[in-house]
Simulated assay, not measured.
Amino acid sequence: MDFQLTEDQRALRGGVRDLLEGRFDVRAALDEGSSLDRGLWKELGDAGFFSLMVPEADGGVGLGLPEAVLAFEEAGRVLLTGPLVGTFLAAGALQGAASGEAVVTCSFGSLVPWLDEADVVLGSGVEGAVPFRSLDPLTPLHRLPGSGGLAHPSPSSRLRSSRGDPTRPAGRLPKARAGAGDRDLADLLVAAEQLGSAGKTLEMAVRYARERTQFGQAIGGFQAVKHLCAQMLVRTEVARGAVYAAAVTGDVLEIAGAKLLADEAAVRNARDCLQVHGGMGFTWEADVHLHLKRAWVRAGLGRSAAQAEEELAAAL
């Protein structure tokens, strides 16, 4: 299978990166707290971010899941805030979502991100949801009543509800767009964000290792630091292969594997990046801790590592 990006896909990725780097500043978002930048949300809609998989006949861009993954990977790089997944899922069915005029969130098991800022909530009702202290200062959360943690439907029930018989070979996601509330698509988009964060923390660690000197040389020359950076690269590229493959096939089990590997890459890369930075990494001024906290929160949305492992093991 050839995972080389086409010229159009590279242009799309570059365009999204330029837009986000020129318009979004994570430090400015911290100053704003948990309020959503509606102006930026509208700009994302105008740029076609939310309507990437909406057919052209319906006013969308008419691209596929691989292109959506590339866009969400770029969002993960810059720690873009807001309920991106919910708004993306609703773009083909809810008026105003594709254009960014409506902010849409969805529940992930027992948690609902950005509930106070959302105009619409996809899926089951959220009556009685209470604010829940988030590890990430840029991801406000609510917890649904009667939940004791980061709950998610069991593997068998989730597969049965979305694919029918859980023992049957997994189906494929629609090429044009998935139905609103599709948990498999949501998990893959979260995995793409995790991949973007993993790649960014790898870049941050390598750059710092080249710049920081100790005992008369750059710390990147020390074997221990080299090993940390090499391990970060391996995790990132393994996760990239899994996420891109799942985007091409839309296979439910490949999506489970992609979420598992992307979560691991994002969390462990952020921790290793912090290690490379040493004492500097623990300070509020460094962005390392923001990537780690966001990675922890994303890992709790959708499939957990244990649930993904159980799905994959059951299919063997």
Rank of each mutant, 00 (worst) to 15 (best):
L89I: 00
L44Y: 04
A151P: 06
L94K: 12
A295Y: 05
N269R: 04
L36E: 06
V225S: 11
G125H: 08
A205K: 06
A57D: 14
V297T: 15
S99K: 02
E285V: 13
L122V: 05
L19I: 00
F88I: 04
P166N: 04
E67H: 05
G128V: 03
F108M: 02
L40W: 05
E67G: 07
K175F: 11
V267L: 15
V276R: 10
R17I: 00
A198P: 11
F24D: 07
G149Q: 08
R207L: 14
R172G: 04
G148M: 12
G164D: 05
T139W: 08
S51K: 02
D119A: 04
S162F: 14
E117N: 10
E21Y: 10
A91M: 09
D18E: 15
A258E: 12
L115T: 06
A306R: 15
V78S: 00
A98V: 00
R172S: 13
M232R: 09
P66A: 06
D182S: 14
W284I: 09
P140L: 09
R143V: 01
A47W: 08
A315G: 08
T249D: 12
E101K: 11
E285L: 10
L70N: 02
P153K: 09
A205H: 09
Q307Y: 02
I255P: 01
S157G: 01
G279W: 06
L20G: 07
A180Q: 11
E285W: 07
D184C: 12
L135W: 09
V234S: 08
G45M: 05
L312Q: 10
V288S: 10
R271H: 02
E43I: 11
T139P: 07
